[in-house]
Amino acid sequence: MTANAADFAGNACGRRYEKEMETHFRDCLLFYLDGRIRFERYCYGEAACLVFSVWAHGLDADGSILWDREPEFESQKTALPRRLTDIQEEGRALQFDGAFKRYVHTEEFALDKPNGYGKWKVFWLKHRK
């Protein structure tokens, strides 16, 4: 499957896709205009917080996510989606590794300053596109 990660970023800075029907963790994939991808795992409950995150520099020709580095712990390694296997609902739902649970589009964001996508960077990325 040939796909470009930037195709899932939308027209603003990027888009957030959240794994559906997840009960213990909130797993999110963020796609940015420059083709970068960020995986974030949050815990639920009173102490809800970011558990870990990993950056990728895009997708290869087979749809495999090109993670910048592998997480240290096995539970984190198994949480990462590895290969895009299906695009559904005109790009609003993404299936990875043939799994039943999909990542569905939940938000489109104009900026993401905490992750390095401020006003000027987004401006240049849009004009480069």
Rank of each mutant, 00 (worst) to 15 (best):
R128Q: 10
E72G: 08
Y32P: 00
D68S: 09
G14V: 09
G118I: 01
P81A: 08
E74N: 11
C43M: 11
E108P: 00
A9D: 02
H24Y: 08
D7A: 12
Q76I: 13
A47M: 14
H24M: 15
E108A: 13
G118C: 14
E46N: 06
K126R: 10
R15I: 03
A6P: 02
P71R: 11
F100W: 13
K101Y: 13
E18Y: 12
C13K: 00
S53K: 05
R38L: 15
F8L: 05
G118S: 03
E90I: 06
L111Y: 07
R36F: 12
K121R: 09
D62M: 07
R69C: 02
K113F: 05
H24A: 12
A110H: 15
A9H: 06
V122P: 00
L29H: 00
C43V: 09
L111G: 11
Y17M: 03
R69P: 00
A9N: 02
H105V: 15
H127C: 04
N115V: 03
G116I: 08
L29D: 00
I65D: 01
L66T: 09
K129T: 14
F73P: 08
D7T: 14
D86W: 04
E70P: 07
R16N: 09
L33F: 07
T85G: 11
D97R: 01
T78C: 04
E107Y: 14
L125W: 13
L111W: 01
D112L: 15
D34I: 04
W120D: 07
G63R: 01
A3G: 02
L66S: 10
L125H: 06
P81C: 04
L80W: 06
L84W: 06
Y103E: 01
A61R: 05
V54W: 09
Y117I: 12
A9T: 11
G35C: 13
F109S: 03
Y32G: 14
C28W: 02
Y42H: 10
C13E: 00
D68R: 13
F31W: 15
D112R: 10
T78Q: 00
R128K: 09
T106P: 07
W67N: 04
Y32E: 14
R26L: 14
D86F: 13
W124V: 14
L30A: 10
G35E: 11
Y117A: 07
N4L: 15
A5N: 07
E108I: 04
E74T: 02
V122R: 00
W67E: 06
F96L: 02
V122F: 01
D68W: 03
K126L: 11
D97Y: 01
T78M: 00
L84R: 02
L111Q: 06
C49A: 10
L50C: 01
L111K: 01
A5T: 01
C13A: 04
R36E: 08
R41I: 03
F39V: 09
S53T: 01
Y117D: 08
C13F: 00
E74F: 12
W124T: 11
H57W: 03
Y17S: 01
